[in-house]
Write a protein that binds this DNA or RNA. Structure first.
Lengths: 200, 200
DNA sequence: CGCGTTATGATACGATTGTATCATAATACC
DNA sequence: GGTATTATGATACAATCGTATCATAACGCG
């Protein structure tokens, strides 16, 4: 069969197997052999497509980044336009919270990588700074538009509010992830905070 | 030397070594041998005082819980009384954020355990639900007192505000931990949110 | 059709890990 | 003071892991 194999396709399949194993048994205890079994291939192939384990781990993180970005891009594209700023924010938060199983897996892996990056020099810390910053900027833009459209108070401090909203989003995200809070409670609580922005 | 050894004392020493290793190299990659070397004892002794590795891990988590509780108790005891609700909240948040190195280590380990509990059935998930809930109740109590004392608005929804404040606290905690945000920014942002509670 | 490159299989190796075993030193107690 | 119990040391073992090696099968291309 060889020679005519789509490398990218194959790498994707292995990466998906990697994600499944990592979310099922934890990022720390993932082994090349377990990934190979999960993907239904031999250990050698995992080595072949990702030279080393570090390479596989790094590719896994990059996949998470890509998936995250493209999911938000897709969501933004299929939004009715022009929606209210408040509903846009609620949609954003609903998307960002670990509501369904897939999102839960994503959050779990993302946080595992974030924790790993704090002790392992081989794991890039940059995504965990740039990622939230991008979300923050998106929140800022939505808030500014809501303010300029008169949907929200004219004296709204969009920068300060975005910082707080992002904090709430992150906090609720992990709270929902560990089961301390339901996604519904989180969303209605966020809605409560958004009501503050309405013009008096 | 044997027979007259303070078991609790010895266990504490080993646990402290465990915490040092875990925060330095990551909770996942901690080994009994590394803990033994860190504590300056033999591998056998670690086995002797904590039958298995799972026992050591569990004891480590319980130590974190104890330290966390007693730190908050100490802080609460040495507070000037009766302080303003707002300053009490700021003190609470400052204590809860990973400002200094020790607090950073604590947060890192705590989150590592929280993540681990999501995939490892051997790690109790209960602390990561009960812990935040206790903090939330504390916030509720302070807010209620501030409202009743007239320091804050009489129509303050203490439950809803406490939920949001706890979310911000958690979110900022990890944001500071991963370096996305400074502790100063986090504190001033929280202060901004607290200003909302002042009577008009 | 043959050859060289790509792709895959089988397997081995050294390191590390958690755990178990055996021996023995030190002390409390009768 | 002898003895049973506690405490500690040394070491072994099987499993697992990441990585490396060698062989070989499959195909594109001239």
């Amino acid at each position: 069969m060889p020679r005519t194999v789509d490398h990218e396709e194959r790498r994707s399949e292995i990466l998906e197997a990697f994600v499944r194993v990592a979310t099922r048994e934890g990022l720390a205890s993932v082994s090349l052999r377990a990934v190979a079994i999960e993907a239904g291939i031999s250990l050698r192939l995992v080595q072949y497509y990702f030279e080393t384990k570090a390479g596989l781990m790094q590719a896994g993180l990059e996949l998470l980044e890509r998936q995250s970005n493209q999911r938000w891009a897709r969501r933004a594209a299929e939004l009715p336009r022009p929606p209210m700023a408040r509903s846009m924010l609620l949609t954003l938060f609903e998307e960002a919270l670990p509501t369904d199983g897939a999102s839960r897996q994503f959050h779990l892996l993302w946080m595992s990588y974030a924790i790993l990056a704090q002790t392992d020099p081989g794991t890039a810390n940059h995504p965990f700074i740039a990622g939230p910053n991008r979300i923050r900027e998106r929140i800022v833009a939505i808030l500014a538009r809501g303010r300029d459209d008169g949907e929200m108070r004219p004296d709204l401090d969009v920068e300060a509010e975005a910082t707080i909203l992002l904090g709430i989003l992150n906090g609720f995200g992990t709270a929902v992830l560990v089961g301390q809070m339901t996604a519904d409670t989180a969303l209605s609580s966020i809605s409560y905070q958004l009501e503050r922005f309405s013009p008096s």
